[in-house]
Design a protein around this nucleic acid. Sequence first.
DNA 1: CTAGATAGTCAAGTAGCTTGACCTTACGTG
DNA 2: CACGTAAGGTCAAGCTACTTGACTATCTAG
Lengths: 168, 168
Amino acid sequence: MNLVKHLDEKTEAPDHIGWRLWQASRAWQADFATAMRAAGHGWFTEARAGLLGHIARAGMRQSALIERSAISKQAVQQLLDGLEAEGIVERLPDPQDGRGKLVRYTRKGLDALRDGDRIKMEIERRYVGRIGEERFTALMGALRALAAGEAAAMGEDAGAEGEVVESK
Amino acid sequence: MNLVKHLDEKTEAPDHIGWRLWQASRAWQADFATAMRAAGHGWFTEARAGLLGHIARAGMRQSALIERSAISKQAVQQLLDGLEAEGIVERLPDPQDGRGKLVRYTRKGLDALRDGDRIKMEIERRYVGRIGEERFTALMGALRALAAGEAAAMGEDAGAEGEVVESK
DNA sequence: CTAGATAGTCAAGTAGCTTGACCTTACGTG
DNA sequence: CACGTAAGGTCAAGCTACTTGACTATCTAG
């Protein structure tokens, strides 16, 4: 309510790279989640989004999903339980392996993905409008370079147990 | 273990701004938390960091902290309980207001802040080394512009209840 | 054909929030 | 100056998103 007004206190606002990244990431996620819910996907949460980002459009083994998502298999399972209950994905026995299960999007899930893609593009357009095409491109470039550098640092790091590429 | 190796699967890696921001933010936080724990601050967690970022070096009213931190007063209280138990902050009655309490860093807390500042600078130096001074500056500039644009968009947004500047 | 690795499930516990109910203290108004 | 209401804080209970540990079923290598 009066939060903005109060910022004229000498506020020691943090301004380091970590805070800026966090702030921008939070803002993006809030935008995205809000738009998804507005688009009728009330089941959408951040944690679920994180998992969905790893599920290949064509479906995949649950074990492969666990490997990619960098959280415990039990956590993946619980999230999948929820998504299955919401009718976003379905789990089928893997014909190739009696132990395995295949995770696949339902019709409803694919619809949500489509909406998600649209919303991402809308947000991106808004960002470009806000800071300009050039700056936006520079931003993406710097973030990609940073990530690539991170991966490289990991790689050099003799015997570090490989870092999973976390996704959204 | 074999996670990196598996990435040669056709992986549909996401590459939109939201994902890049999230990834970079996560990486930074992991770096920071790891370094803090390595520096002997085992009590350090992300949530606590988020709150500490809002506590002025000189201490402040608990109610002011609640206002700035953009989470419920009960959540703030629980986090403070933890930080107090760890000896990072202390709570004193406010002499000006019988209802209020003052939150203040202890010696240990101030030491942790100092270490935190050092670590932030180290990470930043690493980032600059990774992508170059120029790109790093552009990154910071773009992130700041984005945040400023966000605030402005909020401001225009007739009567939107002011957005708190979340911190870390 | 059996030892052990792999795929998945079930159960219980933790961190970090939330909302709701409550008590105490301050303050503006009639 | 009393009193209704707002503000500051606490206590309790519940939820989400994880975690670790223990277990079952299936596959595969020797």
